[in-house]
Design a protein around this nucleic acid. Structure first.
Lengths: 217, 217
DNA sequence: AAAAGTCCGTTGCTTTTGCAACGGACTTTT
DNA sequence: AAAAGTCCGTTGCAAAAGCAACGGACTTTT
């Protein structure tokens, strides 16, 4: 049986009573599976019949470009979903999903959202709405990503990226990326990123150590 | 009364019978409104209670960065939707929506999706599913955008951008952007874009005139 | 404890890019 | 038809960024 406390980290289950959580797990036909660090949860060009919730650990969704660069599509931490769009549409997913750490995944099916059992209960409707809200939030998150990537200098990308964190977490925060992933996330070269970060630190704009940052401005 | 033929360009209404289209218009509480070229359909920080379908013309959804650059979030042609996420979530939309040409917009409400009238008919369910599918497709479209923007040279951004068009439309196609919008879409400078396009033409990779392109390579 | 591996800052070099400005082709306005 | 406006290619220049390589700090493996 799934640990109900873990589920509260996800907007899909947040605040539901234990009975409702159990019902929801049935509604989504949920199954838990664990993967060790570095394992692939999915490979390019397979269909993705279920979407995932990360119960513990971190996964990364990425594609590869011609030159072998990783393009990070989604960095998924504990409590986040991935693959909802592909699962709902039932289409092939041209992506890799890889376990950054050992992870525990709750795989869920969107079948009941598309084809409800009648009559539709209030809880059925609530769960469906929550799923759609997650989809909508995903587009907003991607909007933020586009805002970063659209900037035409690395300095401005960094300022936008860090401002988004600062807006959410305050002036001190830890990011979930190492330098290589951060560079991929910003669409930049790792050494150029290190260089620019060092410059900004020298200018007194920010301070950092590894993946911990402090905005000074 | 709305022209039913126009509605067929949108996945929300495509293939429905005339009666079902009428029902759908009621379901979404649809209202038509026209705007002249250059008019704002929405300004930053207002709530966006309805999402829009472009019946004719083109609109652009964008934000402005600190330096006054436009960041294009969405370029919306006839038959496309915009604002579904904000409308569904009922939150403030930090965006500008501007009519690029004279436009006719069908404004719709997602209220019945969130709070259905019971009993839910098969058509109600179909319309809800179509709306969710549109949301899912939006995230896929944004994935493509992220693929372009993540490339770390303008040349690679261009190749990715043009390849996406070529994959859909073949080796000759017309893009809906002028150079300034194209540059904003790619997160680059307009003159740098012109220069790179000229280089690629000189190298025999492609041919173009204004917004008409042909892939040669 | 040595060895291997990982992560990250640094640097030299070359290429790419942004920026500003100009001018030509074309369209719209008056 | 002149004038004003728009769109786009071009260019010179300075700044930014990619690339490759190295080395130090730290962690994990053996």
């Amino acid at each position: 049986m799934t640990n109900h406390a873990l589920l509260d980290s996800c907007p899909l289950y947040q605040g539901l009573s234990p009975q409702d959580k159990d019902y929801a797990l049935t509604y989504f036909d949920a199954r838990v599976k664990t993967y060790e660090k570095g394992a692939f949860l999915h490979q390019v060009s397979f269909p993705l019949p279920r979407f995932g919730l990360v119960l513990s650990g971190t996964v990364q969704v990425y594609m590869d470009d011609i030159d072998g660069h990783h393009i990070i599509m989604n960095h998924v931490e504990t409590g986040d979903l991935f693959g909802e769009s592909y699962a709902f549409l039932g289409i092939e997913a041209p992506i890799y999903i890889c376990a950054v750490t050992e992870v525990e995944i709750l795989w869920m099916s969107p079948a009941r959202i598309k084809i409800p059992l009648s009559p539709v209960s209030a809880l059925d409707q609530e769960l469906s709405n929550r799923f759609v809200a997650c989809l909508a939030h995903r587009t907003l998150a991607m909007n933020q990503r586009v805002q970063i990537l659209s900037r035409n200098t690395l300095r401005m990308k960094l300022i936008t990226f860090l401002s988004q964190y600062a807006a959410e977490k305050g002036d001190r925060f830890t990011i979930p990326f190492d330098r290589a992933s951060m560079a991929a996330y910003l669409g930049a070269d790792r050494s150029a990123l290190s260089r620019e970060l060092s410059r900004m630190q020298a200018e007194g704009i920010l301070a950092f150590h590894r993946n911990h940052f402090q905005i000074l401005k």
